[in-house]
Amino acid sequence: MKRVQYVPRLPDENVNVTDSSPLKDFVILLTGLLGIITAVYVLLGLAVDWAVERMDAEMENRVFGDFQFDIPLEGRENKRSAILQRMVNDLNRNCTRLPAQFKVYAVDDEMINAVALPGGTIIVFGGLLDIMESENALAMVLGHELGHFHNRDHLKGVGRTLVLMVISTLVLGPNNILNNWMEASLTLTQTAYSRGQESKADAFGLQALNCKYGHVSGATQFFKTMSEKHNLGKVEKFFASHPADQDRIANIKALAQQQGFGEGELTPLPEGLRKKSK
């Protein structure tokens, strides 16, 4: 029998790897995915907005009344909360006349912020109260938050986030690495979206301020203080959810002039809200 012979030879090319450019594939696929997601997100976002505009305050309370938030509401029954509550009630009864009951809480926290949450909850953080120089300035902030309720921004925000979470979990599974990409890119669209809302809420707050005091002095104090506190760089300015302070001051001033709102005497802060001397 003839011996079987070994003829060694390597294959000329690697047939087991598809010939392609990974970077090109990556860019094309990522663009495609983001395009599809953005389209779905915008469409669903519009659907949410549509639904929210038809949701009255009673319904909202029924849905979100028992909603639990991640923000610690300790010290909710304190003195500052009570004063703020009175201010908001007063403002709403006499000026804004929104058909809802608002619950206002002052939270002891350094954060300089105030938020409007579904179910008619307004949370004002201690850091914000500390930089307030007059009752007028505070009324402007509260009016701004009431403006968010008026425009249903608080529900839109929550609704969109819910929609986003549902889509990404459905499509990609709960712990997909691509979620990082999506989440990151969506925060960008979300902040761009809320900038328009902030301006509208500013206008609403300004109206409330003028209605309550007969003038709009102190309307821009908060933003002036903020812009002195930190000078935003160009990049931060683009990504900030609130339009840069200077822009907002300019907007408010222009609006006041347009509406013919005047200047007047500032009312000092209520006793219980004055900054505690440290």
Binding site: V17, T18, S20, P22, D25, F26, L29, L30, G32, L33, V171, L172, N176, I177, L178, W181
Partner: peptide, 17 residues
């Protein structure tokens, strides 16, 4: 990078290069 690429290719189908 490849992990990301694989995730994308998994969504659109085809070769997971």
């Amino acid at each position: 990078f490849k992990m990301m690429l694989a995730g994308l290719q998994n969504i659109f189908g085809g070769h997971v290069t």
